[in-house]
């Protein structure tokens, strides 16, 4: 049977070199995987003997994770140096 499904449409690009668009996709996919693994790990650790009684708030933990991940996108020096 011939495949009659419509061909996929090429993804939009936003950088001068489309290689960057695709690499951003890989980076964000990896970041999402790391966050999923982090969530699993935190869930396991919370069940261990002696675990802290105060658990993380998931939404706050996600926001802090994303801040650490995305901060370089702002392009700001963290310690004052030459421009």
């Amino acid at each position: 049977m011939p495949d009659l499904s419509p061909p996929p449409r090429p993804e939009q690009t936003f950088f001068a070199d489309p290689a960057l668009d695709r690499l951003m996709g890989v980076t964000m996919a990896l970041a999402a995987e790391v966050y999923v693994l982090r969530s699993r790990l935190l869930a396991l650790e919370s069940r261990m003997p002696g675990a802290a009684s105060e658990s993380l708030v998931p939404d706050e933990d996600a926001a802090a994770f994303v801040r650490r991940l995305c901060e370089p996108l702002l392009g700001e020096q963290q310690a004052r140096g030459p421009l």
Binding site: M28, A32, Y35, V36, S39, A62, A63, R67, C70
Partner: peptide, 25 residues
């Protein structure tokens, strides 16, 4: 499921960063 919920939480947090700090910059 738990993994999908974590993925959606990550995306929601990233969208909040995108429309907040990144937009303001």
């Amino acid at each position: 499921d738990a993994d999908s919920a974590a993925h959606q939480r990550f995306v929601a947090a990233a969208r909040a960063y995108w429309r907040g700090p990144l937009f303001r910059e």
